[in-house]
């Protein structure tokens, strides 16, 4: 077939044949993806069923009883208004672990008594100072981290102005509080991020499951701050920066003590 210029154009012009993206297939794709995500594969289904039964048994026999445990409910009642509950929990964990290491040092027969005692005191002081440092650092970055959380919430709420609005509101109250502090008047409370999120129109439009997930994500940010700070102090800063100088000081003290003893003798 001889191609006329018009036909030639129709055959070769990619614009006539190009694929268009009209988004019609998206709903189907999303549906399929969500189905495949929620369905367990045949291979792991029996294992997951067993695991589910196992966690049901723990919930029934242990956790549901544990939440009614007298001392625990008493402690929750006493500490419900503290903002540092996770920090206290992490500190208790660190005290227990460090206590074990201190006990092992104290009962180590390869070390002489003087060295043992000094090392135990060294470990104890390091624990106390690093815990104070962890609390201080956690408090220091709290406000900045809250701004980051607001930024994160803005992304979750699909609202680009959420962070700016929150920050402006917060900065205005901080500035006002400075003046009120100088006048020794009562300070205004800072904006509650969680409240602002739950009042947002996008949040209200979400299903219960998605709304809970969004709130859990923002709550998780607060916990992450404390975990990163305490982890940094206990697992990085102390072993790398503090331990060596502390051991040197300990050696110097022991050397001095030894010299004094030899002089006396």
């Amino acid at each position: 077939m001889a191609l006329s210029p018009l036909n030639y154009n129709n055959y070769n012009n990619y614009n006539n044949n190009r694929q268009t993206f009209n988004g019609k297939g998206l709903d189907k794709a999303e549906k399929l993806m969500s189905q495949s995500g929620s369905q367990t594969s045949g291979l792991f289904a029996p294992l997951e069923k067993q695991y589910d039964k196992f966690t049901d048994a723990i919930a029934d026999k242990f956790t549901s009883r544990f939440v009614n445990f007298g001392p625990l409910t008493w402690l929750s009642e006493k500490l419900k208004n503290t903002n540092n509950l996770l920090q206290h929990c992490l500190t208790v964990g660190a005290v227990l672990t460090s206590g074990l290491y201190m006990q092992r040092t104290y009962t180590n027969k390869d070390l002489d008594e003087d060295r043992r005692n000094t090392l135990v005191v060294n470990q104890g002081l390091t624990l106390i100072l690093s815990t104070i440092g962890a609390y201080a650092l956690d408090k220091y970055i709290k406000s900045w981290w809250e701004n980051v959380t607001a930024r994160f919430a803005g992304h979750l709420l699909n609202d680009q102005d959420f962070y700016t609005k929150f920050k402006n509101q917060k900065d205005a109250i901080i500035a006002e509080n400075k003046k009120l502090k100088a006048q020794k008047a009562e300070l205004k409370p800072l904006p509650d991020l969680e409240k602002l999120i739950t009042k947002h129109s996008y949040f209200k439009s979400l299903s219960e499951e998605n709304a809970t997930s969004l709130i859990n994500k923002t709550k998780g940010m607060g916990l992450l701050r404390t975990m990163i700070v305490f982890g940094f102090v206990y697992r990085y800063f102390v072993p790398v920066v503090v331990t060596k100088p502390a051991n040197k000081l300990c050696d110097m003290y022991l050397q001095k003590k030894k010299e004094q003893n030899t002089q006396k003798a």
Partner: peptide, 21 residues
């Protein structure tokens, strides 16, 4: 990850410790 941190405190703490230590 942030949702996981909320649900699994100890596991996230030890994951952070794994990265740091």
């Amino acid at each position: 990850f942030s949702e996981y941190s909320y649900k699994h405190n100890i596991s996230t703490s030890s994951l952070i410790a794994l990265v740091l230590a």
